[in-house]
Amino acid sequence: MISSDDEKEGGPFRLVLFLGLSLLVLVFAVAAATAIGDFNIGLKTVFLSVTNELGLTNVQIAPIEQSVVWNLRLSRALVAALAGAGLAMCGAILQALLRNALAEPFVLGVSAGASTGAVCVIVLGIGAGGLSLSLGAFAGAFAAFALVALLSNGATSGPNHTILAGVAASQLFNALTSYIVTTSGNAQQARDVMFWLLGSFGGVRWPDFQLLLLVVIFSLSICILMARSLDAFTFGDEDAAALGVPVARIRLVLFGLTALLTATIVSMVGAIGFVGLVVPHAARYVVGPLHLRLLPACAVVGAVFMVIADIVSRVIAVQQIVPIGVVTALVGVPFFAIILYRARP
């Protein structure tokens, strides 16, 4: 029997059960996302198409269905899952480092900075042939971090100052992105970029999945190793240092991982907000605040959330695809308001 204290912290049994159920839901959500589209494909056909490609079966399936399942929809669904997992992990990390329930890449301007860096490569052609889209987004994300650190006066400011600095940085980089797009791109290019900035999984393929899988696994592994340090950060920098945590080094590494994850995701699918805000709180409610349990839970729940959001973006409007950022905002903004209301003095 699990004690009340274990239940509050999310005991091992609850964690295993929660992760197991969440993975089952994720598998079903990915299958549904692969089946739903301009024309629906049966789940049995989806399953056989995947097993055919993996060499497990050799069932005759219409070539168009085989191609749509494997080359278009499955890769899209898996990238959506990884993007949700990565953004949720970023939110959990930033909330611990800054000790603020509202911290996440979108709110802190990291997504906006990554978007500006990516748009500089796309529209202005900066570094063409030498600077990839991901590297441009990575540079923009770190520029946003640097600006937030400067505006918040580094370690001498409180978490609320950092959030306010993030809002200012977000507005600045969003303005720069809009200026670049409207003054340097043609009308069609501007429309495509603005749709991408709101989030779109339409152009992702298997190479994107492979790169993002490596980044997410690498980042999750490092964060798991630093889980106890993240627990210490929730009590403040001074208490973390008293517990033997090398505060400056750990903070730099974790901020770097957050920038790497955010930049990689933004360079592929655009800026998607509120995932890093909503998911950590939901996962924390079930498994507790300890990051050794929280981070894997965030990854799985974030993956489920993003895949379902992608499905909704394709069915909410007839013969149209709504940008994924619109769907996540419809969920995230009310949740944001609830957190603000609960945080009132």
Score class of each variant (00 low, 15 high):
S67L: 13
I217G: 06
V287T: 06
V216I: 15
L87T: 05
G276R: 01
R344Y: 08
I163L: 13
L212D: 09
S184T: 08
G154C: 06
L94E: 12
V69K: 00
I250P: 01
F13P: 11
G130E: 11
I324N: 07
G84W: 00
R249E: 00
A137H: 06
I224W: 05
S229M: 05
S152R: 00
T51K: 02
N71P: 08
A146L: 14
L230I: 07
A248F: 07
K44G: 14
M306I: 04
A187S: 15
A282M: 14
S4E: 15
A29M: 04
F18L: 10
L213A: 15
R228F: 11
G158D: 14
E7W: 08
V27P: 08
F145L: 15
T177R: 01
M226I: 05
M1V: 12
R14M: 13
G276M: 02
V167C: 11
P246T: 05
F142K: 02
M89K: 01
G86D: 09
Q319V: 13
G136E: 08
G42C: 07
A329M: 04
A337N: 13
A103P: 09
I163V: 15
F274S: 09
A139S: 15
A114F: 02
R205D: 14
G55D: 12
V216A: 06
P280Y: 00
Y179K: 05
M89A: 12
V50K: 03
A149N: 12
V269S: 09
K8S: 15
F47K: 02
F138H: 09
V331M: 09
S49Y: 03
L176W: 02
K44Y: 09
V68Q: 01
L172N: 09
L48E: 12
A299M: 05
D237T: 04
L74K: 01
G166H: 02
A240R: 00
A62Y: 08
I311L: 04
L72E: 12
M268N: 06
S49L: 04
A232R: 00
G136V: 03
V25Y: 03
R249N: 05
N160E: 15
A103S: 11
V107R: 01
R342H: 10
L257Y: 02
L254Q: 07
L198T: 13
A85Q: 06
F145H: 07
V123M: 06
V331K: 02
G91T: 05
V327M: 04
P289D: 11
I224P: 08
V253K: 01
R191D: 15
A92W: 01
R249G: 00
S229P: 09
G109H: 03
F18P: 14
F39L: 12
R99F: 04
L225D: 09
L17T: 13
R191Q: 15
V50M: 08
F255A: 13
